[in-house]
Simulated assay, not measured.
Amino acid sequence: MTLNLEAVGLRHANGSTALREVSLRIAAGERVAIIGPSGAGKSSLLNLMATGLRPTAGVLEVLDSRPWQLSARQRQRLRARIGLVHQTPPLPPRQRVVTAVLAGRLGDWSLAKSLINLLHPLDVPGARAELAKLDLADKLFAQCQQLSGGQLQRVGIARVLYQRPELLLADEPVSAMDPVLADHTLGILCRHASEHGVTLVASLHAVELALAHFPRVIGLRAGQVVFDLPAGEVGSELLDALYANEQLASPPVPQPAAVPLVVQIPRC
């Protein structure tokens, strides 16, 4: 079992509750999409799965380990087996793309090797191969600040593909891409997961992409699981309920008050 969550809750330091009683089991090699309205807790759930956040209630198991019962060193080794694609990749503006991609292996490299890689990229062919899959091979030696938002997201994906994690988590990985490119890029991620037996969990705003690329879809709202179903069973009624928002309902348009008609009679 890659992921096991039992009644997991997450409360942030400011007192707000992000997740409530979340129970999920995701097997090795599964491809799962998480959908839901803004503020539903999708990013918090992915960061918790990546061991970036510690649950405040319940039980979390990742790759057959309970992360918060491990030592700091053991937890770091566990994190090297997890790849996280951020919606906005944390890439320094002046960093070269080749260095950003090769940083995917930092969890496996010694400090000395990591420092050498900053000055002299250690695996240029490997970085180029991953970028080529995403049509970015020509940006190998460009600086990150020279790229568009969609190109930066693809660099972040190339970085995780180069990492070769066992668990791949993606938080809105194609939000800055046009629909055609987003569909193509998700296809690459899903194909990589299928070919390498990688467990893939992605949060997506675009419901049509979730239904097209992922066999299993989880609906999240207000920090709780609303449904967990095969994609083929997710219909319009479920989606309407998931995204319903009374606060966004159009208020009735006020009608102008009737103005009494005053007729001026000219004086003779």
Rank of each mutant, 00 (worst) to 15 (best):
228 D>Q: 11
78 L>M: 12
211 L>Y: 05
244 A>M: 07
41 G>M: 12
104 G>I: 03
209 L>H: 13
111 L>V: 15
28 A>G: 06
251 P>I: 09
151 Q>N: 05
86 H>W: 15
39 G>D: 08
121 P>M: 02
133 K>D: 02
253 V>P: 03
86 H>F: 15
130 E>N: 05
204 L>K: 06
8 V>S: 09
128 R>K: 14
185 T>L: 00
7 A>G: 13
32 V>N: 04
123 D>G: 06
82 I>F: 01
261 L>S: 09
227 F>Y: 13
234 V>K: 01
253 V>L: 14
140 L>S: 03
92 P>N: 07
239 L>R: 08
199 T>L: 10
34 I>R: 05
190 C>T: 15
239 L>T: 10
216 R>V: 04
203 S>A: 15
90 P>W: 11
135 D>S: 00
126 G>T: 01
265 I>R: 12
55 P>S: 13
63 L>E: 04
24 L>I: 07
25 R>C: 11
96 R>L: 06
3 L>K: 04
34 I>W: 04
13 A>M: 10
205 H>M: 07
98 V>L: 01
211 L>R: 09
124 V>Q: 02
197 G>W: 06
42 K>D: 12
84 L>S: 03
183 D>K: 10
110 S>K: 00
20 R>L: 09
230 P>G: 10
150 G>Q: 06
60 L>Y: 03
37 P>I: 09
257 A>V: 14
214 F>C: 05
45 L>E: 04
60 L>Q: 13
82 I>T: 08
56 T>V: 12
99 T>K: 01
175 S>V: 10
56 T>E: 11
51 T>M: 04
206 A>C: 05
98 V>E: 01
184 H>A: 11
187 G>V: 05
122 L>V: 02
28 A>M: 03
77 R>V: 12
216 R>G: 03
110 S>L: 03
23 S>A: 10
65 S>H: 14
26 I>L: 08
40 A>F: 04
234 V>P: 02
226 V>F: 12
188 I>M: 10
4 N>F: 13
186 L>T: 08
97 V>R: 00
20 R>S: 13
110 S>T: 15
193 A>L: 04
65 S>W: 10
49 M>Y: 03
54 R>K: 15
14 N>S: 15
117 N>P: 00
33 A>D: 02
121 P>A: 00
3 L>S: 05
106 L>S: 14
246 E>I: 13
169 L>G: 07
73 R>D: 11
182 A>F: 00
184 H>I: 09
144 C>I: 13
148 S>I: 06
26 I>Y: 01
68 W>S: 04
148 S>E: 01
186 L>G: 00
4 N>H: 15
181 L>N: 09
156 G>D: 00
162 Y>N: 02
83 G>Y: 12
